[in-house]
Design a binder for these strands. Structure first.
Lengths: 340, 340
DNA sequence: CTGAAAGCGCTTACAG
DNA sequence: CTGAAAGCGCTTACAG
């Protein structure tokens, strides 16, 4: 007399175990636990109790296989070495986790083909949702997203367009406003120093151009563009170069705070007075900018708020709700300190 | 005459489709594609060709359900706002991705109970591997790891012990060596300023204590410990406090570079000459430390190397290989610059 | 070295 | 509002 053969018994508590204990069918347990409305309140309570006493935890793989959808959210961001994206990712992660979703990160390194291959891999896992950075990408990636049917939210931009969801602010306006601030302060030869040259940086560049052109102060030699990733040391080097320019520049607007911080430190080393000899402005208000000597004038961008709002918007989308504001503009704050 | 009912057809290319085209059974396809040795070479080629023409991509959820194991690796790190962990994570992610594994991050915020609940969630997904930070954790977490049977590698430590795998360096030695460096330079009252007070910081503290005690220079009032997270502004505040101490301190060893950077900037504001009036040393050689005025003396820790090696070690473990060196000590470099 | 059967643990789609 | 049946797409365990 042998026990019935149970190949591959995993010993884990399953739906059926809960169903047995509660005296209902497995499907009712499934529905009760997922909060489907079509279950009698008393049954829900009974099922919940049974699940609790058994310590039942659903198997995500089984759920994903049966439903064709996982509880993963794929997040595609350009880089982790820019603190901006770390802040964004933290907020996103926390928001998504609270709603029961796992975050799968992919780092694109600003490379459209890398983004595409990351997306292909992620799509294999049938993510419940997608977060991508910005609006610009390859056609292949774009149609991959569209065809997948997976809800998608775009970060760091607020350009409304049919059928796309985004949370961010106007990069153009931010670039424009900082430049206006510098003009209003009386600076006349305002350089724009940018690295990476990703789409959002170029939008800020456009804002700067527009402001200078309106003021009749635009000059192409004021543009200092370098495709390398930004860093403090690169900021220092760019500062040294720009200070050699004739006729001299009286203000420099850096596209990211790390560059501006590097410039401030270079100015200290070179004995260049900031803002008397040259004003320096940054972007993003990254950690440390308020500690600089002198404290850095910059644009504070609401990363944490963007991450949280994007997470919430995506959760709504994944749950089939309609989103009242598909394009959320969270703005920015011009943070004037002593450097400009 | 109706077509056979196919409820829930997903339209995706499956194993069976490949099997049909190749003229073999699904299980052979499964084996061929996973590179199991027990398949004839010609069949492997035929299967591969069929898979390629159909554009077959395995369904990770089905695989996970059937095998009881996913292709996920759960990574538990304390914090993303410390650049140290960002570097670690990037290296880890790249290494793991190349080997076909997805990274699932969990941020513990240095909270053991948060670590435990994150781990429970992650374990639900049957990760193929686990990466955790350091050796110290709650008993519950420790036994959760052990009972799960999931291969686990510990980051940032090199304390060998039975059955555990780790990649890092000796925090004690690093703290000790920097202190010796300061003593050798002639400093006599060397403060240790620490924040967060996580286990690794405390090990560095021990190294400092030991070095000072050996030199007969230890004094409990030289310990400045603050449980708050580290930041430039906190470093500045601690510097101001420490500079008020009597008898005066002639060197400060900060447990992390961001504190030391903040102190350097505070010194600039206060007009305190570094290293003449007081020497400043940091830890980790984070980005920007070489740009400080004066450049920061610090300990360069091999984060990227640790991330990569830990990833490789875990991959070996997940594939059932034995690891020759279960505890890998990657060392550190004392990076003497001008601040101390 | 290859395969038919059974199963992983859920959810969908259909009834009632 | 509840359930029996079938299926999601793989892999395990057993034969041969």
């Amino acid at each position: 007399m042998t026990a019935p053969i149970r190949p591959r018994a995993t010993g884990r508590v399953t739906l059926s175990d809960v169903a047995h204990l509660a005296g209902v069918s497995p499907i009712t347990v499934s529905r009760a636990l997922r909060g489907e409305r079509a279950v009698a309140a008393e049954l829900v309570a009974k099922v919940q109790a049974a699940a609790d006493t058994l310590g039942y935890m659903p198997n995500p793989a089984a759920r994903a296989l049966a439903s064709g959808q996982s509880s993963h959210v794929a997040v595609l961001i350009p880089m982790l070495s820019n603190a901006l994206f770390v802040n964004l990712l933290e907020a996103l992660q926390n928001t998504l986790r609270q709603a029961g979703y796992q975050t799968l990160i992919g780092i694109t390194y600003y490379d459209p083909s890398e983004e595409e291959s990351l997306l292909r891999e992620q799509l294999l896992h049938r993510p419940a949702g997608l977060i991508v950075t910005g609006l610009e990408r390859s056609d292949a990636t774009r149609s991959l997203i569209a065809q997948s049917g997976v809800p998608c939210v775009h970060l760091m931009t607020a350009q409304a367009s049919e059928g796309t969801y985004c949370v961010g602010f106007s990069q153009f306006d931010a670039g424009h406003d900082m430049t206006r601030h510098l003009l209003d302060k009386g600076y006349r030869r305002i350089a724009f120093a940018a690295t990476q040259l990703d789409p959002r940086t170029l939008q800020r560049l456009e804002g700067w151009r527009h402001a200078l052109q309106s003021a009749g102060r635009y000059d192409a030699t004021l543009e200092w563009l370098n495709p390398a990733p930004s860093s403090l040391s690169l900021g220092a080097r760019m500062f040294e170069q720009i200070m050699g320019q004739q006729p001299p520049v009286d203000a420099i607007f850096f596209c990211n705070d790390d560059l501006a911080q590097g410039a401030l430190l270079a100015a200290l080393r070179m004995g260049v007075a900031v803002p008397q000899r040259v004003a320096i402005a940054g972007f993003n208000d990254l950690t440390g900018s308020d500690q600089m000597v002198p404290p850095l004038t910059t644009v504070r961008t609401p990363r944490a708020e963007i991450g949280q709002a994007a997470g919430q918007m995506l959760v709504a989308l994944m749950q089939g709700e309609t989103v009242p504001t598909p394009c959320l503009d969270l703005g920015y704050v011009l943070q004037a300190r002593d450097s400009a």
